[in-house]
Design a protein around this nucleic acid. Structure first.
Lengths: 139, 139
DNA sequence: TCTTTATTGAAAAACATTTTCAATAATTAT
DNA sequence: ATAATTATTGAAAATGTTTTTCAATAAAGA
């Protein structure tokens, strides 16, 4: 999808097209790595000198709302902790009560190998988190 | 593992056992949901009134280093963005250059169903991120 | 018990994010 | 085209989080 398609999406959802939004959209749309708000600010200001950081935050908010961008989670990025499971385990979180459960996920090895083959990556780590409702919160 | 086993681990790694650490360890070790530093602070202060928030940060740091706790990622918790892929896709990140790739991972459906059955959870969402080295950065 | 040295909490500093607000610019109606 | 309406803007202030600094304290070893 092109930058102008993103701008159309914004307009179609009742948002106005401005120089600031153009600069942010052009920056984020073409990026091949995840960018933080401050990085977007730094890059987008090359296109619109007057751009403010606040506008970057606000524009990213709207782009996420329209599913044009998505969050990327950094290993050290989230500050919430739970006592660790034994060995390599994955997390299952209840969206109702916050309860955390662990489960084994060694079924993933085959997937890893296939991805490695397809993409040429050497895969070092993986992360899997599931979200849902525990038996209690479903009732 | 018990709170005293965690304290032993700390001592065995050259750290001292203090009232502050005891309070933090007892709080985190028994938690069944992910806690932020401020939440730990609030709870642990019931056990040690004099506890400071800084010490909570420092203790969590050590517990993570010893793999006694692990991070839990919250949906809105990380501030880094990439233009979204089409449909439901997963991320593969290069630890060398930061490059992001997407891949399909519908092979997960079977795993989801099996986890749902085992745990009694109704699974709503899932998240998979892989980390590794891209073909370029391997060379 | 004494000595050494890691650990502490408070305060300050550094950073990141959100809110407020008057000025401005994009769209809509005329 | 132009005027009227109203979303959007950037700056500043406010808020919140995390890190650093430092002198006082307390844990562990002699």
């Amino acid at each position: 999808m092109s930058a102008s398609a993103w701008l159309e999406q914004l307009r179609d959802n009742g948002y106005r097209i401005t120089a600031a939004r153009r600069a942010v959209v052009e920056t984020v749309q073409t990026a091949t790595r995840a960018l933080t708000p401050i990085e977007v600010y730094g890059l987008a200001r090359k296109k619109d000198r007057a751009l403010g950081l606040v506008t970057v935050y606000r524009t990213l908010e709207k782009l996420e709302e329209l599913h044009l961008i998505q969050r990327v989670h950094q290993p050290m990025g989230c500050q919430a902790f739970i006592s660790a499971g034994h060995g390599h385990q994955h997390l299952l979180l209840c969206q109702g009560c916050g309860q955390v459960e662990f489960f084994e996920g060694d079924d993933l090895d085959a997937l890893m190998r296939s991805i490695a083959k397809k993409t040429g990556y050497q895969i070092k780590e993986h992360w899997l988190q599931l979200f849902g409702l525990c038996a209690n919160c479903r009732a």
